[in-house]
C-alpha cells in the first residue's frame, strides 16, 4: 500500500511478482504511476520537514549572529555586567539588568496571574453552571485575542498614571506596571490549559471523594486539583514563556531605561532591550543586541523543555 518503500519495490516487482513475463503496457503505466507517487511523497516529506528547517534556521541564525559580540565582550562581562551603556564613548555591554528584570517581571506576573487564573479555571471546569461557563470562557478567549499593543495602550493611559497617583512616585512607567500588564496577558493561557487538565480528571476520583463525605468544594481542591497537577504546572510554565517573550506591551509601560530592577523604577526587559535599540544600532552595539536575543532564545528553549516534560507527564497520568 505504501509505495515509497523503495527497498521492497526493488526486490519484488509489483506487477509480475518476480517472474520474467511482463505485460508491457500495464507495466509502463504502473511504473509511471509509481514514479508520480514517489514524487508526491517527496513533496509532502519536504513540507513535513519545513518546521524542522525553520527551527534550525532560527537557531543557526541566532547563534551565528549572537556569538561574535559575546566573544568580543567576554561571556562573564556580558552576562553579569551591571551597566548597559551602548552609545557611551566607552560603551559597556552588561545585560544583568535585563536578565534580572525579565526574571523578576515574569515572577511577578506569575505570582499575580497564576492564583487568579487557577481559581478561575477550577470554578469554570468544576463548579460553574453551564451558562456562566460559556460566557466566562468566551470572555477569556477574547482576552487571549486582544493584540499586545492594545494592552500596552490601555496600560499607558490607565495603569501608569494610576500607579503614579496611588504610590506617589514621579513616573508610573515601571516594573510594577509591566508586571500587572503581563499578569493580565498570561491569564488566558493559564485558565485554558488548567481547564483542560482539570476536565481530564476521571469522574471516579471525584465520585469516590464525594461518597466518602467530602463536600464538592473540598473535592475540587483536595482531589481534582492534585490529580491535575502536571497539567496545571504546564499551564504555569506556558505562562512563564508568554511573559518572558512579550515585547510590545511591556515596552509601552515599563519606561525602557536600563536600570537594575526595582518595583517603581523604569526598567528594560530582554525583549525590549532588543526592540528599542535595533532600529538605530550598528557595529558592536547591533551584534550585542543579537547576543541578547540569543540569551532570550536559550531561556525559551529551557522553558519549552520544561513545558514538554509537564505535558507528557500529565498525559501519562
Amino acid at each position: 500500500m505504501c509505495l515509497p518503500m523503495k527497498k521492497r519495490q526493488s526486490k519484488i516487482d509489483p506487477v509480475t511478482g518476480g517472474s520474467d513475463i511482463r505485460p508491457p503496457v500495464l507495466w509502463d503505466s504502473l511504473m509511471k504511476k509509481q514514479a508520480f507517487e514517489n514524487f508526491i511523497y517527496g513533496v509532502f516529506l519536504l513540507l513535513g520537514l519545513i518546521t524542522v528547517g525553520c527551527v534550525l534556521l532560527i537557531t543557526v541564525y541566532l547563534i551565528i549572529s549572537g556569538i561574535p559580540a559575546i566573544r568580543e565582550i567576554g561571556l562573564f562581562k556580558f552576562l553579569f555586567g551591571k551597566t548597559w551603556a551602548s552609545t557611551a564613548k566607552t560603551p559597556q555591554f552588561g545585560i544583568l539588568p535585563f536578565i534580572l528584570t525579565s526574571i523578576y517581571g515574569t515572577a511577578g506576573a506569575i505570582a499575580l496571574g497564576v492564583p487568579i487564573g487557577f481559581l478561575t479555571a477550577v470554578y469554570l471546569a468544576k463548579a460553574a453552571p453551564p451558562k456562566v461557563k460559556a460566557v466566562v470562557s468566551a470572555a477569556v478567549s477574547v482576552l487571549a485575542g486582544i493584540p499586545s499593543v492594545v494592552y500596552g495602550l490601555v496600560g499607558m493611559l490607565v495603569l501608569v498614571p494610576g500607579i503614579r497617583s496611588i504610590f506617589h512616585v514621579p513616573d508610573g512607567a515601571s516594573l510594577l506596571a509591566a508586571i500587572v500588564v503581563l499578569a493580565v496577558m498570561i491569564l488566558p493561557s493559564i485558565v485554558n490549559v488548567s481547564i483542560t487538565a482539570l476536565e481530564a480528571v476521571p469522574q471516579e476520583y471525584e465520585d469516590a471523594s464525594l461518597a466518602l463525605g467530602a463536600t464538592p468544594t473540598e473535592t475540587y481542591f483536595r482531589v481534582s486539583v492534585p490529580a491535575a497537577r502536571s497539567g496545571i504546572a504546564a499551564a504555569v510554565v506556558l505562562g512563564v514563556g508568554r511573559a518572558i517573550g512579550e515585547a510590545m506591551a511591556v515596552m509601552m509601560v515599563s519606561g525602557n531605561v536600563a536600570n537594575m530592577p526595582s518595583l517603581f523604577q523604569s526598567v528594560r526587559f530582554l525583549t525590549t532591550a532588543v526592540a528599542s535599540e535595533m532600529s538605530y544600532s550598528s557595529g558592536l552595539q547591533r551584534q550585542a543586541l543579537f547576543s541578547i536575543a540569543l540569551v532570550l532564545y536559550l531561556f525559551i528553549l529551557l522553558i519549552n523543555a520544561a513545558l514538554n516534560f509537564f505535558l507528557k507527564r500529565s498525559k501519562e497520568a
Binding site: T51, L57, G245, E246, A247, L301, N304
Partner: peptide, 23 residues
C-alpha cells in the same frame, strides 16, 4: 517534527522579527 512545531509556537515574536530581518 512535532517537537519542532511545539518549539516554533513557543518562540517569542521579537525573535521571529529579528531572524526575519536577518534572513
Amino acid at each position: 517534527i512535532e517537537y519542532a512545531a511545539e518549539t516554533l509556537s513557543g518562540i517569542p515574536s521579537i525573535i521571529y522579527g529579528l531572524v526575519g530581518m536577518l534572513f
